[in-house]
């Protein structure tokens, strides 16, 4: 299931950043990349919507309306129905409200899970790359083992032995997604530590911690930003996949993956139940990927004016 992270493979971490980035350059490069600009706007809007969910959503996302939310034969109402802008689902719940609260779930899981994965992956990568030897061998073999499991299978197994909760979903995603970044960071650190300024800081008697933290880490920041952005998209996707399989965020919490799963059952009579969250998911993931691509272009020191 490594095809969940398609864009990450195309980024060359070694081409990223060797000079301080100024805000002026950020705006200039954003002007040249309208897709990234639109994506950023989409993501900001999404974040605002998620934050203001209680104010924006017309109904309680968990509230069923068996009387006004369902048709005469008990079928879901289509989009455009007065009071239910995007229609209702099979239980007579408002799709728009569930979508808005679902954005909250997706973003929180995407950002928190991926943030944890990034922190852990960077830590493992730096320590392994910097110290080398036995430390590196142990850490990277553990990474290899985790990477060699099929992602969904591992998630399923991990969740099966714990209880189904949002917290556990976050932990499971984080436990799986640190590996790619750990490998990338390790390989970057292996080459960085041979750079003369790192050797120079060793001759100055700086502690390993200062060298890793102050001299090596700043050179990794561009790569970390790019991979984290792309990683959020992957985390959102994997959460949806887990929810689709019924092992994600516990019902009745509105998650896009859960909504897609429900929708697929009623696809014949209520296609909007599937399409609306599906389109939101695609747009969000695409926006994260486009922003990630743009960041990697902008931070790419060898071709500062790419595109």
């Amino acid at each position: 299931m490594s095809d969940v992270i398609p864009a990450a493979a195309a980024v060359d971490p070694f081409a990223l950043g060797d000079k301080p980035v100024r805000s002026r350059e950020v705006f200039r490069s954003l002007k040249k990349d309208p897709a990234a600009l639109v994506s950023i706007i989409v993501l900001i809007a999404l974040a605002l919507i998620a934050l203001a969910a209680p104010l924006l959503s017309p109904h309680d996302p968990l509230q069923t309306y068996p009387d006004i939310g369902l048709g005469p034969q008990g079928q879901p109402l289509p989009p455009g129905t007065p009071g239910f802008l995007l229609g209702t689902d099979a239980l007579g719940r408002d799709v728009l409200s569930r979508l808005i609260y679902g954005a909250q779930v997706s973003l929180v899981i995407g950002i928190v899970a991926n943030g944890l994965a990034t922190a852990f992956g960077v830590l493992v990568g730096i320590v392994a790359g910097y110290f080398g030897g036995v430390v590196e061998a142990i850490l990277m073999r553990i990474t290899d083992v985790v990477i060699s499991f099929p992602i969904l299978l591992l998630c399923t197994a991990l969740i099966a032995v714990t209880t189904r909760s949002t917290f556990n979903v976050i932990i499971v995603i984080a436990l799986i997604y640190w590996t790619t970044l750990a490998r990338i960071i390790r390989s970057m650190v292996v080459s960085l530590k041979e750079r003369e300024f790192v050797v120079a800081s060793q001759t100055l008697g700086l502690s390993h911690r200062s060298i890793m933290w102050r001299h090596i880490l700043p050179h990794l920041v561009p790569a970390i930003i790019v991979y984290t952005t792309l990683g959020v998209a992957s985390s959102i996707l994997i959460e949806s996949a887990l929810s689709f399989l019924g092992i994600g965020v516990p019902i009745p919490s509105p998650s896009w993956g859960q909504m897609i799963s429900d929708g697929s059952t009623y696809f014949q009579i209520a296609p909007w139940m599937l399409f609306i969250p599906g389109i939101c998911l695609i747009l969000t993931v695409m926006a994260f990927n486009l922003v990630g691509d743009w960041l990697s272009d902008m931070l790419n020191s060898t071709t500062p004016t790419a595109r």
């Binding site: 060797d18 000079k19 750079r195 003369e196 300024f197 050797v199 120079a200 102050r214 001299h215 700043p218």
Partner: peptide, 8 residues
């Protein structure tokens, strides 16, 4: 050129 950290 290379013995100073370019980002510090």
């Amino acid at each position: 050129m290379s013995s100073l950290n370019p980002l510090m």
